[in-house]
């Protein structure tokens, strides 16, 4: 505790950095996963390979990705862009299937009546299908958020500063205080992201909380 109070400013800086490195890829990843998920749901032939292919990205060892990306992107090894790109890949890996599942969960008769009302395909997607897919997509997003927080910490090994740096620091000095602080901070960060996603979902889906009385 003494260690923590002496390093509050430093921990806070790492916390914000960690938040940035996990949350920004979440947003970019979602933006990319939406059209990919739609494609996977829409076209029977490319659907399964697309979902399987993007899903496999998740099995790439994160350390290897962090080391290889600078060479591929021609960036500096310490450039946070590497981490952002890597985390975006992991987010996409988790979300393409979720988006496709969410869109598939929209009832057939709702789609049918939307078309019959005279919705063109794109506005049907935006105004009917996506809103109804929000609960499923949101569930996937929560998993991706927690996963991101955890994977980002690995980037400490290549020297990118965030909460994971507390682990390497503690390990190098055989000193537990920073490690425990880092773990607690990661849990808090996951909770913050989770609550944030739940809050946004809550606002977007007033309809899903209604039950027929009686």
């Amino acid at each position: 505790m003494d260690w923590f109070t002496a390093h509050v400013d430093e921990v806070w800086k790492l916390f914000v950095e960690h938040l940035y490195l996990s949350a920004v890829p979440l947003v970019i990843g979602l933006a990319i996963a939406l059209p990919l998920g739609w494609l996977a749901k829409r076209y029977r032939i490319i659907g399964p390979p697309l979902i399987m292919g993007t899903g496999l990205l998740y099995t790439l060892p994160s350390l290897a990705v962090f080391i290889l990306l600078p060479g591929i992107l021609h960036t500096q090894i310490l450039d946070p862009v590497n981490v952002i790109v890597a985390m975006t890949i992991y987010t996409i890996a988790l979300l393409v299937r979720t988006v496709a599942d969410g869109l598939r969960a929209v009832p057939e008769d709702v789609l049918l009546s939307a078309t019959a009302m005279g919705y063109r395909p794109f506005s049907r997607l935006v105004k009917v299908e996506l809103p109804l897919a929000v609960p499923v997509i949101s569930a996937g997003l929560r998993v991706a958020a927690v996963s991101n927080v955890s994977i980002v910490s690995v980037a400490a090994i290549i020297g990118v500063q965030q909460l994971g740096s507390l682990f390497t620091d503690g390990f190098n000095r055989a000193f537990f205080a920073p490690i425990i602080t880092g773990i607690v901070a990661c849990v808090v960060l996951s909770l913050v992201l989770d609550l944030l996603i739940m809050g946004v979902t809550h606002v977007l889906t007033p309809w899903s909380r209604t039950r027929r009385p009686g």
Partner: peptide, 21 residues
């Protein structure tokens, strides 16, 4: 097609209402 559909009312078996509206 979309214009044609807007000129015709359409009712189906389970109503097909939009659950989110």
């Amino acid at each position: 097609a979309a214009t044609l559909r807007r000129s015709m009312g359409y009712v189906i078996q389970h109503a097909g209402l939009f659950p989110h509206r």
